Simulated scan of single mutants.
Amino acid sequence: MTTDSLIEAAARLADLREQIGRAARLTNRGADDINLIAVSKTHDADAISPLLHAGQRVFGENRVQEAEGKWPALREEFSGVELHLVGQLQSNKAADAVGLFDVIHSLDRPSLLTALAKAMDAAGKRIPCFIQVNIGAEDQKGGCAIADTPALIAAARAADIPLLGLMCVPPADVEAAPFFALLAKMAREEGLPRLSMGMSGDYETAIMLGATDIRVGTALFGERPSPARPVPASGRGMLRNSSN
């Protein structure tokens, strides 16, 4: 970790918080009313530490296994960290998630609800959850269908799972505002106070439509590197030949 990385992280965080505050004021709220979740998926401890030094304490991860590999050590070094699971959760990872995370954003089906309730009972603690709604009815995305969401909310309440609110990831490359507005309407109808919506490209719109929790990665960490593509067999042969 270099001095430059510390300065850059602090500057990015300050700039983001200023923009959050500007959007929040349009809804008669302040920056402190918006929970900024720094999404650190794919970033290692060296990339995360500068933000921790800058004062950020709420982070989001997509995968249980990845979080297990870096956060226990970071939490020993930095106090007050709150860790959110913002990615899809397999039912067989429910116990691990309950042991590691402080908040889960991706409760989206009865089988996962059952697994989480069992894991929470075994651990003797309750982990607050958001119910993820498939707000754009996209087959490739997780999330509870809009029509099924009231029943899942009722089942979670019956299982004594503390519900914070609703979460969504709107469809890409279209205007997000109508989807955010629909999620806000659903939350109001169910008496749920919090909305986990808005990412680096649309968090200001989300805040203006009622977001209480925004999940921001790129604006804090920069662009993630593209995953390496496997070299085809023919390409590997050409590469070998070219090195001769």
Rank of each mutant, 00 (worst) to 15 (best):
R75A: 15
A24F: 10
R25K: 13
Q140R: 15
I207G: 08
A159S: 14
A187N: 06
G210E: 07
F78E: 06
A9N: 08
P171N: 07
A97M: 11
G80N: 06
S106Q: 07
L83A: 10
A172E: 13
N134Q: 04
A219R: 13
K70F: 08
D15P: 00
S111T: 13
E66C: 04
R109H: 00
V86G: 01
F221S: 04
L16E: 09
G198Q: 11
E138P: 02
A10H: 10
N134K: 04
A187D: 07
G191P: 06
E189M: 02
I161N: 01
D32C: 01
K70S: 11
P162H: 05
G80P: 11
A95D: 14
A115D: 09
D15Y: 00
E190R: 02
S196C: 05
A155C: 06
S40K: 02
P128T: 09
M186K: 11
V98C: 10
E189W: 00
T27Q: 14
N92K: 15
I127G: 06
E223V: 14
A47S: 14
L83N: 12
A122P: 01
A184K: 13
P232S: 15
R126V: 03
R126G: 03
I161Y: 01
D160Y: 00
V133W: 05
S242M: 11
I161C: 15
A73C: 02
V231I: 15
E66P: 03
E61C: 11
G237F: 06
R109V: 02
M120V: 02
P72E: 13
G99E: 08
R12A: 13
G165W: 07
I37S: 02
A97H: 10
D173I: 01
E76I: 03
R109I: 03
S91T: 12
N134M: 05
A184V: 03
V103G: 12
Q140C: 01
E138T: 05
L89R: 12
E204M: 14
A115Y: 09
G142D: 09
I48Q: 03
L209V: 00
I146F: 03
G142K: 04
H105Q: 15
L107G: 04
N244D: 11
R157Y: 01
R194Y: 04
V86A: 02
C129T: 11
G60E: 11
N244S: 14
S79R: 12
L13I: 08
I135R: 07
T3A: 15
H43R: 15
P232A: 12
V86W: 01
W71G: 10
V133D: 07
K93C: 13
G80L: 03
S242F: 13
K141D: 13
A31D: 05
V86H: 01
L192S: 10
V169Q: 14
G60Y: 05
D202G: 06
R22N: 00
L113G: 07
K141G: 12
C168Y: 04
I104R: 02
P170D: 04
T205S: 11
E61V: 11
L85F: 08
G143N: 04
E223H: 08
R236W: 10
G198L: 11
I131R: 02
E175A: 15
L26Y: 01
I214R: 09
D108Q: 06
A219E: 13
A122T: 13
H43D: 00
D33L: 03
M199S: 10
I20E: 07
L166R: 05
T27E: 10
P227L: 04
W71D: 08
D44C: 04
A10D: 08
R240S: 12
L83T: 13
F101T: 07
E223K: 14
G142S: 15
P232T: 09
